[in-house]
Amino acid sequence: MQGLIFDIKRFAVHDGPGIRQTIFFKGCPLDCRWCHNPESKKYSPESFCLKRKFGNHISEETESVGRWMSAGDIIDSVEKDRVFYEESGGGVTFSGGEPLLQTDFLSEVIQLSKKSGFHTSVDTCGYASESDLKKIIPFTDLFLFDVKMTNNNKHKEYTGVSNELIIKNLKLLDEIKMNVLVRYPLIPGVNDLVEDIAGLAALVSSLKNIRTVCILPFHRLSEAKHKKFGYTYRMGGTMEPEKSKIETVSEILKSSGLTVRTGS
């Protein structure tokens, strides 16, 4: 079977332990207003007509985003950097988009990854059925699990879906003692109020095993990408959070007994 992939990044250093290769799945059930990868949302290949300037030459060409790949194709690519994973304790990260939107394919490729001896991470928004999640649990070494907001109304407003399923899945992973890193995108004006952070602290500290939260401060680097592919950038007025803000958030979480990491 084949999966729809929109990018593969080698030397990924922020998506789990060691040096990793990150496989970006195309298609996402959420519609987060701050999404950094607008081209990752749709579960179908897309074509963009781009103008490229090269000296005085302007070339108009079609860039297609989204490529159907077999699990074997992906393993071939991951295999290329084996020496780096062996030295660093790294491996492969499945990200997106949302990898669990293509659960059957993810399940195939993640099993193959384990068989090849790679450490596996799944970077997920958590919005998936319990049965889908369970298909990959036995083959996943680490979940990078996004919690965007604990306030469900706000969650619906900013991402288009309810967070009930997400929180349920987080609790499920916690129950069975999966290795999980909670990731919290910190977006000024969206989820940076004291009550937002208090909600997050309450949720994570109520868990039995999961103790680490990773704060991902909002950045504007994707504005250029939106422009390039012709998407509307919806975060026009939002600035990157100030250092002091990040520190305050971090302090609140730490005071709830959590381990906090900052950075993408």
Binding site: F11, V13, G18, I19, V83, F84, E86, E87, S88, G90, G263
Partner: peptide, 22 residues
């Protein structure tokens, strides 16, 4: 930015070790 903290520096260290293993 690739050298910004201990963890990043460690990863550059792994990169070096890998190249040298080859």
């Amino acid at each position: 930015s690739f050298f910004r903290d201990e963890e990043s520096i460690q990863k550059i260290g792994y990169l070096i070790r890998s190249y040298f293993r080859m």
